[in-house]
């Protein structure tokens, strides 16, 4: 990590994800135009930027939930530009959503169990014969209970997911994502709507995941969290990557400060501006 270059689009030693020339246009408006971005394996990388910078759009493009107008995405050495979202998830690229999503009328436990991979009982012709999948189901259930317990949802397993609070739904989403045993965990604002007590739980989980070597990519507005857990920070503005580097470097980057505060910041407001607006 010490050898990584702190310039936008710099090449990494062992990138798990490489996005090249990824563009997304909505009509005449370019929402994302990332020339080149590499995410280093084994690090916690945060993607920051002001509202409307294109962070979530880039997330959707990388995870296959949106299709870019041009560009390529290489994950773990193979080109996944044309892969569907579920194929990318199977390959180990697992995401959560900015607005939490869960199956409200399924229990917390079922929500977690859904995400386990290679389930024999998901094949239509095996499903009616429970003998074929009972043993695997038990293993999955054990693992799901363990993962849910680490997120403090151990007592909620039999409740409908719809009864959880906003913060608990974040935890459930994280638990579900971990059930897939991801190579790259992509979290879209994991701190959104989470109270301080639960924030600590999430931070702890992320740190321990990072310690186990899972690569994590986070979109986050919460600067305490970004500075607290990130090894690397990428800043976007108006669809472009404008800076990347270690947290301290990016926090003091002139372009980043300008992007957050606006280029006109500091200029006194003229009376003529106000009249013009009217």
């Amino acid at each position: 990590m010490t050898t990584l270059e702190e310039t936008p689009g710099s090449s990494k030693a062992d990138p798990v994800l490489v996005a090249h020339d990824v563009q997304r246009w909505f009509g005449g408006l370019q929402s994302v135009g990332v020339d080149h971005l590499e995410i280093e394996t084994g690090l916690v990388t945060s993607l920051i930027g002001p509202n409307g910078a294109g962070k979530t759009t880039l997330f959707n493009l990388l995870s296959g939930f949106d299709i870019p107008n041009s560009g390529s995405v290489v994950f773990g050495g193979s080109d996944i530009s044309r892969a569907k979202p579920h194929q990318r998830a199977r390959a180990g690229m697992v995401r959560t959503f900015q607005l939490t999503r869960s199956m409200t009328r399924l229990t917390v436990l079922e929500n977690a169990k859904l995400a386990a991979q290679h389930q024999v009982g998901e094949r239509l012709w095996c499903a009616p014969i429970s003998a074929l999948w009972k043993r695997q189901e038990r293993e999955i259930e054990e693992r799901a209970r363990a993962v849910l317990a680490t997120f403090g949802l151990g007592r909620m397993v039999d409740e409908y997911a719809g009864t959880l609070s906003g913060g608990q739904r974040r935890l459930l989403e994280l638990a579900r994502a971990l059930m897939l045993e991801p190579r790259l965990l992509m979290l879209d604002e994991p701190m959104g709507g989470v109270n301080p007590a639960l924030r600590e739980t999430i931070m702890d989980q992320l740190r321990s995941l990072a310690a186990q070597g899972t690569t994590v990519l986070i979109v986050e507005h919460d600067m305490d969290m970004v500075m607290g857990v990130s090894d690397w920070v990428v800043c976007m503005a108006q669809g472009k990557v404008i800076a990347e580097g270690r947290p301290a470097t990016v926090a003091n980057d002139g372009a980043v400060v300008e992007a957050y505060l606006g280029s006109g910041y500091g200029d006194p407001l003229e009376p003529s501006d106000v009249e013009g607006a009217q």
């Binding site: 939930f65 569907k84 579920h86 998830a89 697992v94 199956m103 995400a115 998901e122 897939l180």
Partner: peptide, 9 residues
């Protein structure tokens, strides 16, 4: 969308 993100077709 959750089902897709869980790797199911």
């Amino acid at each position: 969308e959750v089902v897709r993100s869980a790797g199911k077709s």
